[in-house]
Amino acid sequence: MGSIDALVKAGSSLGALSRTEYKSLLVVSEIYRQQEWMYNNKVHRIEHRIVNVSQAHIRPIVRGKAGVAVEFGAKISASVRDGYVFLDRISWDNFNESVDLKAQIEAYYNYTGFYPESVHVDKIYRSRANRSFCKEKGIRISGPPLGRPKANVSQELKKQAQEDERIRNNIEGKFGISKRRYSLSRVMAKLPHTSETAIAITFLVMNLSALLRQVFCLFYIYSTIKSFSASIHY
């Protein structure tokens, strides 16, 4: 960077750089600024931290999972309805998924004309704001209520909690299938919009596969009934 500044002062022009080279120069300058700011302020984090020169849009996301404390890539917010996955949000910055719950429920209302009877969510979604919103709309939100856990829980509530967790596991299973079977964990696109397109296509193919299974199931049922009816003789 010092050499480039010296060349510019000597009369050279940055216009001689290609578009890719000029973009890399801007990225490297921003990385230097961020690193210098963290050094001067004796901190180890900064907003919108750049960790890759060629993919400046990628941010480190601290997940705290076993073996992988930090992940790199897009963060998505998704929901499952009737076996189909809806990609509600894609972001390259870290965000709290719980803020999307209201928008997801309203999207469900706009799509169906009525609010869901219940929503089955992870612990992070069970905030006071989301609980109040669901209560206002007459929606049951899964999970225990806020406050100290009750000493004695009825068998009915335990059964309901198990059923809620079983239903919520659908979204976890969809993420696992998308990574293992549909290569969501191996998106090789470089640009942000091409990466987002690849992610969206992955979920589109998953939904098409689910639709195809339903069609085959209906065809199998129809064929079974038809063959059974043909074998009946009076």
Rank of each mutant, 00 (worst) to 15 (best):
V99N: 03
V85G: 00
D82I: 08
S91T: 02
V121M: 07
V99D: 03
Y115P: 01
S98P: 02
V85R: 00
E71Q: 08
E97Y: 02
D88T: 03
K75E: 06
E71P: 05
F114C: 14
D93V: 06
G83I: 09
G113W: 05
H120I: 10
N110C: 13
H120D: 10
Y84A: 13
V68S: 12
Y108W: 07
W92K: 06
K75Y: 02
D93A: 08
D93F: 08
A69L: 13
I76L: 14
L101V: 09
D88K: 03
Y108N: 08
F72N: 10
D88G: 01
V68P: 03
A69T: 12
S77E: 10
I105K: 07
N94I: 02
L87K: 02
V70F: 02
V85I: 12
V70Q: 04
S98G: 01
N94R: 02
I90E: 03
V99L: 04
S91H: 04
V99P: 03
N94M: 03
Y111K: 15
K102F: 06
K75A: 07
Y84V: 11
V80S: 05
Y109I: 00
E117S: 12
E71H: 08
G83R: 01
D82M: 12
A103K: 09
V99M: 09
A74E: 07
I90P: 03
V70D: 00
Y115N: 08
D100E: 13
F114A: 15
K75V: 02
A103R: 09
N110V: 12
D100W: 00
I76R: 00
F86S: 11
F95Y: 09
A69Y: 10
R81P: 00
N110T: 12
F86G: 05
F86M: 14
F95S: 04
F95T: 03
Y111Q: 15
I76V: 13
R89E: 11
